[in-house]
């Protein structure tokens, strides 16, 4: 048995339709400057018959996070639940993490190191940051802390086709397994609509 959740994102390419809902919801909920993409939908082979597909990518909150490894000022920290966060008061905006990141997650605001979003900005899985929970400083530097509120991160909450799911890895895997098991078995919804969007 484990004591803590292990938070993970999963995006189903068969369901992602490139609607950008996750991106816009993230930007809006966290009041990001235009041009900062904590999350981005990537479409490959756009317009090519039979080959086009899309996937939504943000910080994947790696267990052995390369950004954490390479940061010269050790501004990153990994929570017990696996969410990778960083301290904007320590960050110097050098961009080493961008070299290391396999997903292009780190973002660098154009308004300089001392602008409202600070030095480097990235997806927090809507878990705020090192500033006191629900403080104005946390809100301004890191955005919403929906995890502390017991809510699903904004991107997954808004996903129109439920391609993007997030939560404890065991839960995410269970949803994926249930979907796989349901394949070809016909329409089914034994519960109400609160369950239907699974």
């Amino acid at each position: 048995m484990y004591e803590y959740a292990r938070m993970k994102f999963y995006c189903d390419e068969d369901r992602c339709i490139d609607c950008h809902g996750c991106e816009v919801a993230c930007s809006d909920a966290n009041e990001l400057p235009v041009g900062i993409h904590r999350r981005k939908v990537i479409t490959l082979n756009e317009g090519i018959e039979g080959k086009e597909f899309s996937v939504s990518i943000a910080c994947m909150h790696c267990t052995d996070a390369p950004c954490f490894q390479v940061c010269p000022v050790e501004c990153f920290y990994i929570r017990e639940d696996g969410i990778v966060l960083h301290d904007k008061d320590k960050c110097i905006g050098c961009g080493y993490c961008l070299y290391a990141c396999p997903f292009g997650a780190p973002q660098f605001p154009r308004d300089g190191a001392f602008g409202i979003r600070g030095v480097m900005d990235k997806c927090t899985m809507c878990a705020g940051g090192p500033a006191p929970t629900f403080s104005i400083k946390e809100r301004e530097l890191y955005g919403q802390n929906r995890i502390a509120e017991g809510k699903v991160p904004m991107c997954a909450a808004i996903c129109s086709t439920n391609a993007l799911i997030v939560g404890d890895a065991a839960h995410v895997a269970a949803i994926k397994r249930a979907r796989d098991a349901a394949k070809g078995k016909g329409a089914m919804t034994p519960y109400g609509w609160d369950q239907a969007y699974k």
């Binding site: 129109s160 979907r179 394949k183 329409a187």
Partner: peptide, 10 residues
């Protein structure tokens, strides 16, 4: 469109 995707899936 999710319902269409679900029809494909299930």
């Amino acid at each position: 469109f999710k319902h269409i995707l679900k029809a494909k899936e299930r």
